[in-house]
């Protein structure tokens, strides 16, 4: 069952369909910091993350903490996907490297680092997987997550960032709790219904 879901798109953050924070048309950099401040999170490591990790971190924070979900660290998996892998940071690293290569940027030139950041924050020791697909693929998520051990929870979804483009849909799948059915059509509906509203 899908017990909680977070959508971050058009500089608007929603948890379970309810608006939590709306940005004011500023850059993605500023929006992510403002959202972090608005959510009153105290985690200084946030500031050194790249935008992909920041976006995934915020959504995970809402799905796992603000929702009140309970889980044990070894019994939760993280299955993420996106279209641009880490290309946003790859480009920034390559540009910075024309003068001096930055190790602090280089470590973010892998897409699964966002999963690593989420695992550190929430003490998740279960399995991770990162897939790259052209668009959010509801059947890939529905199928793959259903193949994980049945007693595991799973934080799954889509975390895509490239320049100002941002598109996040993270949800918690839990076989033992009530929620929406975990299948491709529900995922497709939840992903699409909050896409393309307000504030460019």
């Amino acid at each position: 069952m899908i017990t909680h879901y977070c959508r971050i798109v058009n500089k608007t953050v929603r948890l379970d369909g309810v608006e939590i924070f709306r940005g004011e048309g500023k850059s993605l950099d500023e929006f992510l910091i403002n959202a972090y401040n608005a959510l009153k999170i105290d985690y200084p490591k946030f500031y050194k993350m790249d935008n992909l990790s920041k976006a995934g971190f915020l959504a995970a924070e809402l799905v796992l903490k603000n929702s009140g979900a309970s889980y044990s660290g070894e019994k939760i998996s993280v299955v993420l996907s996106n279209a641009h892998a880490s290309l946003d940071t790859d480009v920034k690293y390559a540009n910075a490297s024309k003068t001096v290569p930055s190790p602090a940027l280089f470590v973010y030139t892998l897409p699964n680092i966002v999963a690593g950041e989420i695992c550190i924050r929430h003490k998740i020791k279960g399995e991770n997987a990162f897939f790259v697909s052209e668009t959010f693929d509801p059947s890939l998520m529905a199928t793959y997550v259903s193949m994980l051990p049945a007693d595991n929870l799973c934080l799954a979804g889509w975390v895509d960032v490239m320049g100002e483009h941002h598109d996040v849909f993270l949800y918690l799948q839990d076989n033992a709790s009530p929620g929406k059915p975990h299948n491709a059509s529900t995922l497709n509906e939840l992903y699409n219904k909050e896409y393309g509203t307000v504030n460019g």
Binding site: N128, A129, F131, V132, E134, L140
Partner: peptide, 23 residues
């Protein structure tokens, strides 16, 4: 883009269904 690379290689080799794992 990794998904486009994978699809291109898959097609060149005669396959239809491609998946990218980048972990």
């Amino acid at each position: 883009h990794l998904h486009a690379t994978a699809r291109h290689i898959a097609k060149a080799c005669g396959f239809k269904h491609s998946l990218v794992v980048s972990n």
